[in-house]
């Protein structure tokens, strides 16, 4: 028994060391950027693609470690897994309507009901899963980030207490996030493969995806207005029935 407790403590210590390590990696990255810019003036500009790519990976890893450190039960782990798969599979009935997918909305709702970690993980998982069938590529981390943040944004809405205001804030956030999603996905192309990095060039990139983003935003609005109360009810009922994410 004693050794068990010891190993428990060891594990706890180890996980905190991991956490500190991760923080220091992030710190080091920032330091590297500053030093790099001093030694080599156009460092940020020339290596914008690689730097942004690494920052995204570090950000994702940060969440993976935080998720590891959370004391989740088996029920909560499978809930996250199943919701990720559900969100990816929910695209299928809508495949016949171009540029409309319920993923963003589902992820936001998961973040809203089950908290930031579940939201982020479900978002990241959705991107990972759908890309296993559509093709993984350098865009995968960015997509994981974009959908992960959707989960965080959904969690943010839960701070609005007034239920009526909540719905409208959620609706508005959904519409705005349709465009933010587009911006994040454009960022990787812009930073990596488009020069010069000026405001004008960013707008040019943005213009090409604008019609799709608008459809995305509209789709979100329709999903939220039709389905948000229903899905919220389903998730809350489930949370009560099986006792998952009750504290969030």
């Amino acid at each position: 028994m004693k050794s068990g407790r010891d190993s428990d403590r060891n594990v706890a210590v180890r996980s905190y060391v991991k956490m500190i390590l991760l923080r220091s990696i992030a710190l080091f990255a920032i330091l590297f950027l500053i030093v790099g810019t001093i030694v080599y003036p156009s460092f940020m500009y020339d290596f914008a693609g690689i730097i942004s790519f690494i920052l995204v990976l570090v950000f994702l890893l940060q969440f993976v470690v935080l998720y590891q450190l959370k004391n989740y039960s088996s029920k909560e782990i499978t809930t996250v897994a199943v919701l990720g798969a559900f969100s990816a599979a929910a695209r299928i009935p809508f495949a016949s309507i171009p540029s409309v997918q319920p993923c963003t909305f589902i992820i936001m709702m998961v973040g809203f009901v089950f908290g930031p970690y579940a939201g982020f993980m479900v978002g990241a998982e959705t991107a990972l899963l759908s890309n296993f069938f559509l093709g993984q590529g350098p865009w995968t981390p960015w997509q994981m980030l974009a959908w992960g943040i959707a989960g965080l944004v959904g969690y943010g809405v839960s701070f609005v207490r007034n239920p009526r205001a909540q719905f409208y804030v959620f609706l508005l956030t959904g519409v705005v996030y349709g465009y933010i999603f587009g911006i994040i996905m454009n960022l990787w192309m812009w930073l990596g493969f488009v020069r010069p990095l000026t405001f004008a060039s960013f707008i040019a990139v943005e213009m090409t995806s604008f019609p799709f983003d608008t459809l995305h935003a509209l789709g979100n609005a329709v999903f939220i207005s039709l389905f948000a109360p229903k899905l919220e009810k389903i998730l809350k009922r489930y949370s009560l029935k099986f006792g998952v994410f009750l504290d969030s």
Partner: peptide
């Protein structure tokens, strides 16, 4: 890579 995230991903891969 921390195993909780990996196991979660594998489970969703298998239910997908």
């Amino acid at each position: 890579i921390p195993d909780k995230a990996l196991v979660t991903a594998v489970i969703s891969l298998s239910v997908f």
